[in-house]
């Protein structure tokens, strides 16, 4: 396309430049709308800017995209049954891990091994647990400070 879209230098307008977009989108108050309209009558640069933005918006709004066929929508992910089975699955896995870990800890605590060896093994396990906890704490903190957390997901 031969036409080049240019960026205009600032002019002597007495309002914030973004009001030009508000004017284009019919989103201004009556007073601001009038102020921008009066300025545009005298300012060819701003007028050209609004006309360019208007053309881009019009072309953009008329863009159409190929959409999926109806049958592609039928396979919906994670329905009630799959979500329920996943939840029960996680519950069982966590319960199983808790029982196995408790049994192993009890066996280890009551075994006749030397105290030094027990301390050594315990320190290693504790280190892994602490590392895991630190990652979890960091993730939780990141979620709490996420600026988008208030919006529905």
């Amino acid at each position: 396309m031969a036409e080049r879209l240019t960026v205009h230098p600032p002019c002597g307008r007495r309002f914030a430049e973004e009001l030009l977009s508000g004017y284009l989108d019919d989103a201004l108050t009556q007073g601001d709308d009038q102020r921008v309209r009066l300025h545009l009558e005298d300012c060819p640069n701003c007028r050209a800017q609004v006309e360019e933005m208007s053309k881009l918006r019009e072309v953009t709004m008329s863009t159409r995209f190929v959409e999926p066929r109806d049958d592609q929508w039928d396979e919906r992910p994670r329905g009630t049954a799959s979500r329920l089975s996943r939840g029960v699955g996680w519950l069982l896995v966590v319960a199983w891990l808790a029982i196995v870990a408790g049994f192993a800890a009890w066996q280890f605590a009551t075994s006749p091994e030397a105290l030094t060896l027990k301390t050594f093994v315990f320190a290693g396990v504790l280190g892994v647990v602490l590392l895991f906890l630190s990652v979890v704490i960091d993730r939780v903190k990141a979620m709490k400070t996420d600026r988008y957390r208030g919006i529905e997901k």
Binding site: T6, V7, E18, L19, S21, A27
Partner: peptide, 16 residues
């Protein structure tokens, strides 16, 4: 409004 205007300017700059 301000973000949209900045985005539109950026788009025009890229196109230009």
């Amino acid at each position: 409004m301000s973000r949209l205007h900045r985005a539109r300017k950026a788009l025009r700059e890229v196109l230009g």
